[in-house]
Amino acid sequence: MNLISHYKNIKAYVTRDGSEIRELMHPDTQGNKLQSLAEAIVKPGEITLLHKHIKSEEIYFILQGEGSMTLGNETIQVNNGDSICITPGTKHNIRNTGNEDLKILCCCSPAYSHDDTEIAQGAI
């Protein structure tokens, strides 16, 4: 079975961390089984809420822009072309420090779930 999604048909929504997401491939919509792939957009000057995922390992690939990312107890600078692995249970967020949209390709295994996302206390 071949699974395909078309970007033009995918509606964006806002996740619990405050980023705009397009689920490019997700078990709930395309029928794949073990992972999800999404595009996240963070507007200039915006920051996502500090959060963690209990079960999912997440990989970010920076498609466009630049940012400052909190990853556990570290703050790192990220730029176009960088990849970041976020292990389950690691608090993280990202701030767009540039003048254009920060676009991130997000891979989650197991697939992204709102129920697997915990917002850090004091982050709301």
Rank of each mutant, 00 (worst) to 15 (best):
M1A: 12
N2R: 15
L3S: 11
I4R: 14
S5L: 04
K8T: 10
I10D: 03
I10N: 07
A12Q: 12
Y13T: 10
T15M: 06
T15V: 12
T15H: 15
T15E: 14
R16D: 12
R16I: 11
D17H: 13
G18T: 10
E20I: 14
R22S: 04
R22M: 09
E23N: 15
L24E: 01
M25R: 01
H26A: 03
H26M: 04
P27W: 03
D28I: 10
D28N: 13
T29S: 14
Q30A: 12
Q30V: 11
N32W: 02
N32G: 11
N32H: 09
Q35C: 07
Q35W: 14
L37E: 00
A38T: 01
V42K: 00
V42H: 02
K43I: 05
P44E: 08
P44D: 10
G45I: 13
E46S: 12
E46A: 13
I47D: 00
T48Y: 09
L49N: 05
L49M: 13
L49K: 15
H51M: 07
K52P: 00
H53Y: 09
S56M: 03
S56D: 02
E57L: 08
E58R: 00
E58D: 03
I59S: 01
I59R: 02
I59C: 04
Y60A: 00
G65N: 08
E66P: 00
E66A: 06
G67A: 07
G67H: 03
S68F: 01
M69W: 05
M69R: 07
T70S: 06
L71N: 04
N73Y: 06
T75R: 11
I76D: 11
Q77C: 04
N79W: 06
N80Q: 15
N80V: 04
G81M: 08
D82S: 10
S83I: 11
S83R: 12
I84W: 05
I86V: 13
T87A: 14
G89N: 10
H92A: 02
H92K: 05
N93W: 01
N96K: 10
E100F: 08
E100I: 15
D101N: 15
L102R: 06
C106E: 03
C106I: 15
C108T: 06
S109H: 09
A111E: 07
Y112G: 02
S113G: 11
H114E: 15
D115A: 15
D115I: 11
D116S: 12
D116G: 11
D116Y: 11
D116H: 13
I119T: 08
A120F: 10
G122I: 04
G122Q: 08
A123N: 05
A123D: 04
I124F: 13
I124N: 14
